[in-house]
Design a protein around this nucleic acid. Structure first.
Lengths: 341, 341
DNA sequence: GGTGACTTGATGACCTTTTTTCATATGTTT
DNA sequence: AAACATATGAAAAAAGGTCATCAAGTCACC
């Protein structure tokens, strides 16, 4: 199939028997043109359904008014919300958005960056893949002075702006909640240790324990590979412990939900046998039985703030110096943890 | 913030003291170039981190290798899955994807089309918004011979390829399932009547009733505006009916889940008091209590098939004549409906 | 020495739009 | 009639890359 022909300024010019410069002047609303001519041209452009070729325009002015976005996966509700926030607010400021997913692989992340840069995007919003433990590709675009920032899945060694949640604070809140509702032995089920959020949330967990005068027990920290099988394996391990925890805080909701489902199948009662809490406030967490206590992360808001900051930098409204924007999270207590007395 | 300078062919040429044409030939792997020179150039290009400017390239060859995608909303798991399928398979064939969401409004749908067309995308994959009841914008791009197809939310009057689910068949399956598990009075909760899927699923519903020799009762068809409030209102209306249905089939999962949640709050038991079924197989439907019987629609697959067909048309592999691709759905029986005897 | 093959240079057209410059053609003013 | 303003044309340069063409150089071979 071949694309149909697009109307160009040249063709309008020919049709009206005027020159291309006149067309350009008319469409740019230049003051040195007779209003009548201007009107004639604008009307003809409309009639011929003229659309300026953004490629040519971008090439000329060396700006595309397009931003690139890279997320680990679109099907995650959280990232979908971020994208939604990014899109809405990018559009509001006259920018378009090209979205790519890395599928949690370093390889695709690199490839996406390459393509977006080649497409001359004006800036990039990146959330790193789980696999990303090496940062040459980011340093590369940093050195090439391509404006970008990191959100949610960030790295602290790259001198660019970061937008994150107060992961430590959220983990602190939820651990504290478990302790306040009577748990004595609270476990933390983490993701891979080199993940930024694994570390941060562990800090919050430890912080809360510390505040309650509890010495951390290494047996009460487990690491999941975040696959369904991995999560179930952890659930099983916990069930089989001689000395079980009485409260479990999982780094992300899906881990908690997989464990919950497994526990239900073997007769473990939540929260009576063990309390359970997650993090992220996925839509699913509200409807499982019992509803899961979790920590809400406003994804749309994160997308909005990220894109706004980047555009502010592009437009010279904000300084180019990297800043760190930290969004607060909110504890969402539900029935998977006991009630406060 | 200003974007850093990008290396051009001219600069490589200057550095190596050769002409731009030689660079071009080397990068195009032209056979008429000495292998040594080719190697020298390719290495220098790599060293200088040269990336061809896709804008210029696209402008010249009048092809962008980019597809545009318009979905009603990204945060829906179903559409996110479609996008994922589209992206993966577009990339596989060397295409990029620009994604836009219409937020279920006609206005944004039009604006998105305009922008994507102005950006010279090679083709479009469109899923219509709920509000779209007028099709000038589609006829417009049809007349301008811009290759596109419709998926999921389609319209049958535009002569372009369509990719849909067998909505009628899925609705028939689930209604039949309700009848087979003992329901005598099955209700259909529809969305707005001008929606394609509202109509199709109603056909399937009626088809099953007919097969069981049941005369459709107009009181057993309700229409929701698909907002949470609207769904709850329907749930309430059903609860207050003097002669309640004993099975309710909702056009989409969220409607069923909102109704289920409301019913739980007022003590109606599912499936004992009334059986309940949805459509789409949202992740949520598997974890509500009781798990919701629904119809699975493979979104990733739909995205994959859509993009593959469009690219086949673009590449001349498939004929330009519009075809209709119909994907089969699968009944997912769960505990919100009674078991078969 | 002539022929042909191979390699590279040099040039320019082209894609579309933007922007500038200079040249005209009018009409208006003094 | 000269001076000026206004409106428009015509053309070129630029953005970066592609592609084709012609010229010219080097080399080998008969």
């Amino acid at each position: 199939m071949k694309k149909g022909h697009q109307v160009t300024m040249k063709e309008i010019a020919k049709k009206l028997g005027v020159s291309v410069s006149t067309i350009s002047r008319a469409l740019k609303d230049s003051p040195e043109l007779h209003p009548d001519t201007k009107k004639r041209i604008v009307e003809m452009a409309k009639e011929m359904n003229y659309q300026p070729n953004l490629l040519a325009q971008s090439l000329r002015i060396s700006r595309t008014n397009t931003l690139g976005v890279i997320v680990p996966e679109i099907t995650s509700h959280f990232f979908a919300s971020c994208i939604s926030g990014i899109q809405d607010h990018a559009n509001k400021r006259g920018y378009n958005v090209m979205i790519c997913q890395s599928n949690e692989t370093l390889e695709l992340e690199k490839a996406n960056i390459r393509t977006l840069v080649a497409s001359q995007v004006d800036g990039l919003l990146i959330s790193l893949s789980r696999e990303t433990n090496q940062f040459d590709h980011l340093l590369d675009i940093y050195n090439r002075e391509i404006p970008f920032l990191l959100f949610d899945r960030v790295n602290e060694d790259i001198p660019v702006s970061r937008v994150t949640f107060n992961d430590e604070g959220g983990a602190y809140q939820v651990t504290k909640h478990l302790l306040e509702t009577g748990c004595k032995r609270v476990m933390y089920v983490s993701g891979p240790e080199d993940l930024y959020i694994s570390k941060k949330r562990k800090e919050g967990y430890l912080h809360a324990l510390n505040e309650f005068g509890i010495t951390p027990d290494p047996a009460l920290v487990k690491i999941s590979d975040l696959t369904i099988e991995g999560n179930i394996k952890i659930g099983k391990e916990i069930a089989e412990m001689k000395s079980r925890p009485d409260g479990v805080f999982c780094m992300i909701d899906p881990v908690a939900i997989d464990i919950l489902t497994f526990w239900k199948s073997i007769g473990i009662k939540v929260p009576d046998d063990m309390a359970l809490a997650g993090f992220t406030n996925n839509p699913t967490s509200a409807v499982v039985e019992p509803p899961l206590t979790t920590v809400a992360q406003p994804g749309y808001e994160m997308g909005k703030l990220s894109v706004t900051h980047l555009l502010d930098q592009l437009d010279g409204i904000a300084s180019d110096d990297p800043i760190s924007i930290v969004l607060e999270t909110t504890l969402v207590p539900r029935q998977s943890t006991k009630a406060l007395k």
